[in-house]
């Protein structure tokens, strides 16, 4: 029955890992701005689109 000790130890450890992750996230200021990241996330596609012509421009400059 001592398997319960292992199980408990594992579950508590996992819980503590997540708890520490939360504390670290707060400490780094991830919760300071809860709006901008939600907008920023949607920019990814446009960024890829604009990168292409940019490359051509730099090549032209080199030529």
């Amino acid at each position: 029955m001592s398997v319960i000790y292992i199980l408990l130890a594992v579950s508590v450890t996992v819980a503590i890992v997540f708890f520490i992750a939360f504390i670290v996230a707060v400490k780094r200021g991830q919760y300071d701005d809860s709006y901008t990241p939600s907008v920023r996330m949607l920019f990814e596609d446009e960024l890829v689109k604009v990168k292409k012509p940019k490359k051509i421009n730099t090549n032209q400059l080199k030529d």
């Binding site: 300071d32 809860s34 920023r40 920019f43």
Partner: peptide, 19 residues
């Protein structure tokens, strides 16, 4: 957040919309 394209001297810019 794309200021680096206007001037290569800028390496990163991060907006805080709320503030």
């Amino acid at each position: 957040e794309n200021l680096n394209k206007l001037n290569p001297a800028i390496s990163a810019s991060i907006v805080n919309f709320g503030k």
